[in-house]
Simulated scan of single mutants.
Amino acid sequence: MPRFKLFRCCLLGAICVLGASVLAQDEGGDVGSSGVALPVPAVKLVDAAPSEASAERSFFGRIAARETVDLSFEVGGLLVEFPVVEGETVEEGALLAHLEYGPFERAVEEAELALAQAERDYERASQLAEQNVASQVQADDTRTARDLSRVALRNAREALSDATLEAPFAALVASRLTAQYSNVQAGLPIVRLHDMSEIRVEIDVPERLFQRATGPDSVRFHGLLPQVEGPIPLELVEFDAQTGSVGQTFLVTLRLPELNIPTLIPGATMTVIASTDIDAGAGIPLPATALLPGADRAARVMIYEPEGETGGTVRAQEVQVTSISGTDLTVSGLPDGAQIVATGGHLLNEGQRVRPYTGLSVEE
């Protein structure tokens, strides 16, 4: 190549490099060791401002009845009728089972005859005592025997009544606990019933959620079911006043509104969402990607400081990190109104020039 042409090519290259360097200085960008302008990186920013102070958790809920009871006879005997069917609904006062009535009816008849005899003995002894033929002590003894016979008759009649088992409330029959034609003893469970006048759901709530709540009324619950569109409002009924032995959780019972869903029976599951107000002064929420670990294990963030209309520089700021809900991170030690690099801060240097990321754009 002729020497003149080589000189001209080198001169044009130098002019291009010099122009790029001047342009980079005009735009506030950095220049590499070769003198070529380095591109200004775009960074996504988040505002360091307190958001709505609330924490939210999802729980596995188990449907429960208002009450679940095991019914039994107060007397023993032969179970001759047991018409209930598992899974059916029975009305209040409906017949659930009864024992053989014969022995109890005979006991009532025997007690009635004994009372009649005791009343006659008392009348005879009273007349003799008035005529001074018999002592007053004998009259008092026959009166006591009469009173005992009355008590025995009441007991016999109550035993006959207890031989019939009726539903104490409108209930769902959960299970039959014994077989028909069995000789049952007093107190042996016969049938298990669910009181479905109120449908409830039970969840285990961690101690942390209650400690962060600003008050009992600040915890709000709603449930999710595939059969129902949208959230279902739930009302707090009660909770155990002591934590479970495993996991430090409280058993919380919630009330569901009236839902005409046949499959919503005890043992079914639903998702329960609990949200609670928390102390807004506990810190500023930031994504985990915004935090940068330091050599001394202290956490840092990159703060964006605007310079001009198109960009600015970044600087490192040490912060204190806490966790309110156990899943979200909050920081303190940031100036008011600061803009934080949301991700990629570990790729930036102190004082490096950057520009805010505003999304992709297409030029026509």
Rank of each mutant, 00 (worst) to 15 (best):
L11M: 14
Q25P: 00
V31D: 07
S33H: 14
S34T: 10
V40P: 01
V46N: 06
A48G: 03
A53H: 03
A55S: 05
G61I: 13
A64M: 13
E67Y: 00
T68R: 07
V69T: 09
V69Q: 12
L71V: 04
G76R: 11
L78V: 00
L79M: 08
L79S: 06
P83F: 11
A97K: 02
Y101V: 06
F104R: 10
E112F: 01
A116W: 10
A118V: 03
D121L: 10
E123T: 03
A125R: 08
A125M: 08
Q127Y: 06
Q131I: 02
Q131M: 11
V133M: 01
Q138Y: 05
L148M: 11
A156H: 08
R157H: 09
A159C: 02
S161N: 13
S161R: 15
A163S: 15
T164W: 13
R176N: 12
A179N: 09
N183F: 01
V184D: 08
Q185D: 13
P189N: 15
E198P: 00
E202L: 12
F210T: 01
A213M: 02
S218R: 10
H222W: 14
L224F: 13
L225Q: 04
Q227N: 08
Q227H: 06
G230I: 10
E235P: 00
F239V: 00
F239I: 00
D240Q: 11
Q248C: 00
T249G: 01
F250V: 01
P257M: 03
E258N: 15
P266L: 13
T276N: 04
D277Q: 10
D279R: 03
G283E: 02
A290V: 01
P293V: 07
A298W: 05
V301L: 01
E305K: 14
P306N: 09
A316E: 11
S323Q: 12
I324D: 04
G326A: 08
L329T: 12
T330H: 11
D336H: 03
D336R: 02
A338E: 03
I340W: 03
H346C: 07
L348I: 06
G351K: 06
G351A: 06
R355A: 10
R355F: 02
P356D: 12
Y357D: 15
T358E: 13
S361N: 07
E363S: 15
